[in-house]
Simulated scan of single mutants.
Amino acid sequence: MNLHDYIKPLDKPALESFAARCGTTVGQLKQVAYGYRRPGAALAISIERETSRSVVCEDMRPDIDWAYLRNTTVAALIPLPHAEGHGRVLETA
């Protein structure tokens, strides 16, 4: 589900309450829902939390490596700096 589909059925008081729980305004939510603005990482996380994962960060901000932050198997190879300046890879899977 995307943010637009999530907020569409909400009446005005429910939408205002949702926005407040997310730490933003109704106007900002609508800008994000209609694709005019991208949410910051913190707002994306708040939206995911307040929608009980009905709307997920990965859909709102595909440019962020959420798998790495969530420590999921999608981030199976994590580049780590080596003491001599050479990269090495840590296998997490």
Rank of each mutant, 00 (worst) to 15 (best):
Y36C: 08
P79N: 11
M60R: 01
V26H: 06
P9W: 02
G35C: 05
V89Q: 10
S46M: 09
R70E: 10
G85I: 04
I78Q: 14
T25G: 15
L10R: 02
R49G: 01
D63C: 08
T73C: 11
V26C: 09
T72L: 12
T25P: 08
Y6H: 04
T24L: 08
P39E: 02
G40S: 14
K12P: 04
D11V: 03
P13L: 04
P81D: 10
T51W: 07
W66H: 05
I7R: 00
S17R: 15
D5Q: 09
Y36Q: 13
G40P: 02
L90V: 15
S52W: 06
S54R: 11
V56R: 15
S54H: 05
R49D: 02
G27I: 01
G23V: 06
I47Y: 00
T92M: 11
V89T: 15
A83I: 06
H86I: 12
P39M: 03
A83R: 12
D63V: 07
A33C: 02
K12W: 07
I7H: 01
T92H: 08
V32R: 01
L10M: 10
Y34G: 09
G87N: 13
A75C: 12
H4N: 12
A76V: 14
I78G: 11
E58A: 15
L69C: 05
W66G: 00
Y68M: 11
A33L: 02
T51Q: 08
W66C: 04
L80S: 11
L80M: 15
